[in-house]
């Protein structure tokens, strides 16, 4: 075999090592986070599920009485808002992220970005930060509407809300990646929306698990949705987070995270 050698020139800027040719890690991750956030906030369907749906649920439950709520002595808005915040976390960390990742996976976006200096780790970090950024927007909008409706949260519980949000985000992002990395994009679209509706109705998110029918009541507290809802209500109503809910969320995060890391397929 013969080969031609059309020159042995080297690129104009020969690198000592590869890594200094990449932008610093924090800048790559920040760029990815901002890219993800903009993609979600610009997408009509994503906005519908992450912002419009929780706000509609909040206003609907507070301002109408078609659902006869046992508010256990709290005002309707105080009783409902923590659950709506939990719903908001689920819609962004789970439904929206699962769908976005599934289509990015199908379109080869994940693989392409994994070949840039961002890498797989940076991509994941960027996604998680993007989810958190969208959640900040959600909290501002939902809390704004709730305050306008007369919401009086337990101020002592606010720091705990941050922790609960992070934990819920971790559990539901892991579930999102597990689905997005194993099913076809169209399947993820269907399953992610269906699961959100099922958990919304029977998962103990909006209303305490105890208000559900008997078998569901026991099941819902063990679901990540029920645990997140209970933790939010504990923090914002009483100012304390029930330890049981934290343990349940930690368990789900560990299990789903393990599953996603084992089963996620990039191709």
């Amino acid at each position: 075999m013969t080969t031609t050698q059309p020159g042995t020139v080297h690129p104009a800027e020969p690198p000592a090592s590869g890594e200094d040719r990449a932008a610093p890690a924090w800048r790559r991750i920040a760029a990815q986070a901002s890219f993800e956030t903009r993609a979600i906030l610009r997408n009509g369907e994503q906005l519908l599920v992450t912002i419009v749906l929780p706000v509609l649920v909040l206003v609907g439950l507070v301002r109408t009485s078609f659902l006869d709520l046992d508010t256990q002595g709290w005002s309707r808005v105080d009783f409902v808002t923590p659950g709506v915040l939990a719903l908001a976390v689920m819609s962004t960390a789970f439904t929206s992220q699962a769908i976005a990742t599934a289509f990015d996976r199908r379109n080869g976006v994940l693989r392409l970005l994994a070949t840039t200096p961002l890498g797989r780790g940076g991509l994941l970090a960027g996604k998680v930060l993007g989810v958190l950024a969208v959640e900040v927007v959600q909290v501002v909008v939902i809390a704004g509407v709730a305050l306008a409706l007369g919401w009086r949260p337990a101020l002592a519980g606010l720091p705990a809300v941050v922790g609960v949000t992070l934990l819920g985000t971790a559990a539901f992002t892991a579930l999102a990646l597990l689905l997005a990395g194993t099913l076809r994009a169209e399947g993820v679209l269907a399953v992610a929306n269906l699961l959100l509706v099922l958990l919304l109705v029977g998962g103990g998110v909006l209303l305490p698990a105890g208000e559900l029918a008997a078998p569901l009541a026991h099941l819902a507290v063990l679901l990540p949705s029920g645990a997140l809802g209970e933790a939010m209500r504990g923090a914002l109503l009483e100012g304390t987070v029930p330890a049981f809910s934290v343990v349940v969320l930690l368990g789900w995060t560990a299990a789903l995270g393990w599953g996603a890391s084992k089963l996620f397929r990039w191709h």
């Binding site: 800048r27 379109n107 976006v109």
Partner: peptide
């Protein structure tokens, strides 16, 4: 790398995508 299926996210503008990839590099 240029993948066979492109690997481009569908919801972003063309130049925005290119700028984003460029932001991963120092120069």
């Amino acid at each position: 790398v240029m993948l066979q299926d492109g690997g481009l996210p569908t919801g972003v503008r063309a130049l925005e995508m290119l700028r984003h990839v460029a932001s991963m590099y120092a120069r």
